[in-house]
Amino acid sequence: MTAAVDLRGVTKSFGAHRVLDDVDLELAEGTVTVVLGPSGSGKSTLLRTINHLEKIDRGQVRVNGTLIGYRRVGDRLHELPERDILRQRSRIGFVFQQFNLFPHLTVLENVVEAPVSAQHRKRSEVEVEARTLLERVGLADKAAAYPRQLSGGQQQRVAIARALALQPDVILFDEPTSALDPELVGEVLAVIKELARDGATLVVVTHEVGFAREVADTVVFLDGGRVVEQGPPEQVIDHPTHERTRAFLDRVL
């Protein structure tokens, strides 16, 4: 069985600073992976390489066996034309820390836009589906509202519905609750937990260790651009073997 997400020797530098250093990661389909690590450890960059929002310097990224962002010719990788990359991305959901909803479009239009323009599906069909998705995230009554009329938690739930509308193979969450008021974090995590229960493949970068312990199948601890430790939460969070993991957990718990 091919892994849902497969990273091999992924290396990425911003100037002289090496953000990702030879990262190998293999995530099985239907699993929830939580990436923990101190700020600046490369968590977000790692997530962004999976849908090629960030180009890599070396290594390869595969989603469901498909090489992302590049075409292999011999032992070289050639970057794909943007059109092909966009097509690949429409199978990979991405949820941003700052939601990034389109403020000039209604909630429904936000959800419908990509399936229609990127996947060429019929608008009427997608709209019915979008309403079902909005119901699923508890926002059926907000379809006609504009994003700025919603709370942060509601906006992030719309963003999740927008990602789901593409029927993605995997959904990536980049610190989905970090921009939220503390009392709004719960509603967003609840939606993500439900997705996990339904068997979606999720990769979540977060600081919510409690969430990681409860939902994650695998916890990956990243520091200095390297995977320091990885395994089930009861191992990585409760019995970390590495000093750096322990130090980090002591600080956040």
């Binding site: 849908n51 059109r83 991405f94 990602a163």
Partner: peptide
């Protein structure tokens, strides 16, 4: 226009011209 808008459109796979005209 906030860079995040372009990035979100791009992450959703919206074609490039559509990103400009719609977003």
């Amino acid at each position: 226009v906030d860079e995040g808008q372009r990035e979100a459109a791009s992450a959703l796979g919206i074609p490039r011209r559509r990103q400009l005209t719609r977003i």
